[in-house]
């Protein structure tokens, strides 16, 4: 609760000011994804800006999660998935043969739909990333990273007295914030969130949403959501996906108030989806 009050002072959800012309962090050009014979993503072009929350919305099965998972090459783990086209992170093709996805994922962190802390202590959960990437030289530095990450995830006050306890013993909302802290701890540049609130109650959802708004100051955040209200509340840019195509992409305000495409309008007004 303390954390909530703290974030309230910074910015209210929904009142996030539109950022002007941030530099492009991720550029996708002509991206196609195939699951076996199924053409899941069709020729998607998008420029995702830094220090911005970009929301992917669309009906179930529209490919928004699939596209998100292309951005840190999580689709590599699915044998039958094939990605074509270019995705550039700071101008470098992340699907280049020389790119090791492990290194990519250190820079592009991910938070999943279901909170999935490791069955280890809270401390070890957060410290895991810095440890495997060798970000620290000693225990003191690691302690600092853990504390800073937990603070960033608005979890420090609740977790500081139980760092040695298991991360799986926390509530759902706390677990998801722990996962955010874990992702943040590797000091990524981009944070991908795949429906991070869909398994949470409204209060926990509100906390996460405020957190996302704060994270925007340091990261490029991409969030997939089923909830249009959530997209409207947290994002500055919105992309609407439908049947594997990216139908429309633009400022969130514009997408929600004066969409150009009929399909976007239908979805937003609840006629499809």
């Amino acid at each position: 609760m303390d954390a909530m009050a703290h974030t309230d002072q910074i910015s209210m959800p929904g009142s996030a000011p539109l950022t002007e012309a941030n530099e492009v962090k991720i550029a996708a050009r002509g991206v196609d994804v195939f699951y076996g014979k199924n053409h899941a993503i069709k020729n998607v072009d998008v420029d995702i800006e830094d220090k911005t929350v970009t929301a992917f919305i669309g009906p179930s099965g529209c490919g928004k999660s699939t596209f998100l998972r292309c951005l840190n090459r999580m689709n590599d783990t699915i044998d039958i998935a094939r990605v074509e086209g270019d995705i550039l992170l700071d101008g470098e093709d992340i699907y280049d043969k020389r790119v090791d996805p492990v290194q990519l994922r250190a820079r592009v962190g991910m938070v999943f739909q279901k909170p999935n802390p490791f069955p280890k202590s809270i401390y070890d959960n957060v410290a895991y990333g810095p440890r495997i990437h060798g970000l620290t030289r000693n225990k003191a530095e690691l302690d600092d990273i853990v504390e800073a990450s937990l603070r960033r995830a608005a979890l420090w006050d609740e977790a500081k007295d139980r760092l040695k306890e298991s991360g799986t013993g926390m509530s759902g909302g706390q677990q998801q914030r722990l996962c955010i802290a874990r992702a943040v701890a590797t000091q990524p540049e981009v944070l991908l969130m795949d429906e991070p609130c869909s398994a949470l109650d409204p209060i926990a959802t509100a906390q996460i949403e405020e957190l996302i708004d704060e994270l925007r100051q340091n990261f490029c955040v991409v969030i997939v959501t089923h909830s249009m209200q959530q997209a409207a509340r947290v994002s500055q840019k919105t992309a609407f996906f439908h049947l594997g195509e990216m139908v429309e992409y633009g400022d969130t305000e514009k997408i929600f108030n004066s969409p150009e495409d009929k399909r976007t309008e239908s979805y937003i007004t609840g006629r499809i989806g």
Partner: peptide, 15 residues
């Protein structure tokens, strides 16, 4: 072992 644990590990850049 639940796939979520594998994803969690891969997602933060574990080999």
């Amino acid at each position: 072992v639940p796939p979520s644990i594998r994803q969690a590990a891969l997602g933060i850049g574990a080999s």
